[in-house]
Each structure stands twice: as C-alpha cells, then as structure tokens.
C-alpha cells in the first residue's frame, strides 16, 4: 500500500509505515469509536434487559445476517485483490475487482431492505422492545455506511478509468480500500452481537 513513513530514527522503518494517509485514518478511528459507543450501548441494554436480548436474535433472520456477513467479507477480499492488481500495474483488472465489490455492496443493501421488510411483516419494529431499537439503530447506521462506501468505490473506479492512478501512486484507491475494510470490521462485530449470541 502507499505509505507515510514517520522520520523518527529511533523506531524501525517497518513499524512506522502507515497505509493510506492520515486523513483516512482519522476518519476510520472516529468511525470505529462511533461503533464502539453503539456496542457499549448494546452491552448496557443487554445486562439491564437479559430476557429481551436472549429472545431478540431468535426472531431475526439468521439467513439474512449470514448472507450479508459472507457478502461483506467477500467484498473486502475483492477490494484487497483490486489493490494487488493495481500494484501489478493492471488497472483494468483492478477496476473489475472493484466492480465486483460494488456488486457486493448493492447486494448487501438489497438483502438488508428485504430483511427490514420481513421484520415488519413479523411485527418487529423499533417500538417492539429495546433489543429491536438497538438492532435498528446499529444496523441502519451500518446500512448508511455501506451505501456511501459503495458510492466511494464507484468514484475510485471512475478515477481509475481516467488514468489518475498509477502503479506507483494510487493513494485514493488505498484510502477507500481501508475505509471499506473498516465497514467490514463493524459488520463482523454486529453479526454475532445481534444475530448469534443469545
């Protein structure tokens, strides 16, 4: 990945690399903190409402949650392969991997909408109980991240196609790749908390 290297001579070079740029890391750490606050809210609500949180996941669609986890992990894999292709100076291949990631993002959004519709048909809403209030708050927040993350990947594909990135300089691609992995990290945490652990 494109890197920033701090100039401190006391730290070995390999421990000073920063993939992408500082701005994207400020954004990633801020977003990870935002999700951490949501997870703390989940834990606190859970200890105060153990019965509700034990029963809550049983009424959600494990299939939808699992499918979206597989899709998010696969999209992250596609993004890694896009970065590798760019380093090999294969811009067209890189763009194809990114389009595959965009397809995953779109599929995730479609499945999530079907899941929300299915929940509604089961009578589940933010008003049902605190478990579903937390579920909707966390998952809709993540839904928005996938939405703008997908749009950002499309922007990077446009930049790739207009030859703005080169084998040596493609920091924009790296930054979006890192941001997408952050969205993936948030989802792999949400999945066990809301769908698996009873």
């Amino acid at each position: 990945m494109n890197t920033i290297v701090f100039s401190s001579p006391s730290i070995p070079a390999r421990t000073r690399k920063i993939p992408g740029n500082m701005a994207i890391w400020a954004a990633i750490l801020a977003e990870m903190s935002e999700f951490a606050i949501m997870f703390i809210v989940y834990f606190l609500a859970k200890v105060h409402n153990p019965q509700v949180f034990s029963e809550g996941p049983t009424k959600l669609s494990t299939l939808a949650g699992t499918a979206n986890t597989l899709i998010m992990l696969t999209s992250s894999f596609f993004v890694v392969r896009a970065v590798i292709a760019m380093r090999q100076n294969k811009a067209d291949t890189s763009a194809r991997w990114l389009w595959a990631a965009v397809a995953c993002g779109a599929l995730y959004l479609i499945i999530k909408l079907f899941e929300y519709q299915w929940n509604t048909s089961q009578g589940l809403s933010t008003e049902t109980n605190i478990f579903y209030a937390v579920y909707y708050y966390v998952t809709f927040n993540h839904f928005l991240h996938v939405g703008w993350g997908t749009a950002a990947i499309i922007w990077v594909i446009y930049r790739l196609k207009t030859n703005i990135y080169t084998q040596e300089e493609h920091e924009g691609l790296i930054n979006i790749a890192l941001y997408w992995h952050m969205i993936d990290l948030a989802w792999i945490t949400i999945f066990p908390l809301l769908y698996v652990i009873r």
């Binding site: 990945m1 000073r16 993939p19 992250s76 890694v80 992995h181 993936d184 652990i197």
Partner: peptide, 28 residues
C-alpha cells in the same frame, strides 16, 4: 458457545486488520 463466538470474532477481526488492512507490519 459464547466463548467460541467471542474467539471467532477476535480471529476474524485480527485477519482483516493484519492482512486486509495490511497493518501487520505498519505503525505500531
């Protein structure tokens, strides 16, 4: 089962952080 799920999450997170985000040899 709770411990297994927690360990699975820890492993998945570590793989993405170390290998997908390439932080394994990045700034400490």
């Amino acid at each position: 089962s709770v411990c297994i799920m927690a360990i699975v999450l820890a492993i998945k997170g570590r793989i993405i952080v170390d290998y997908f985000m390439e932080l394994k040899e990045a700034h400490v």
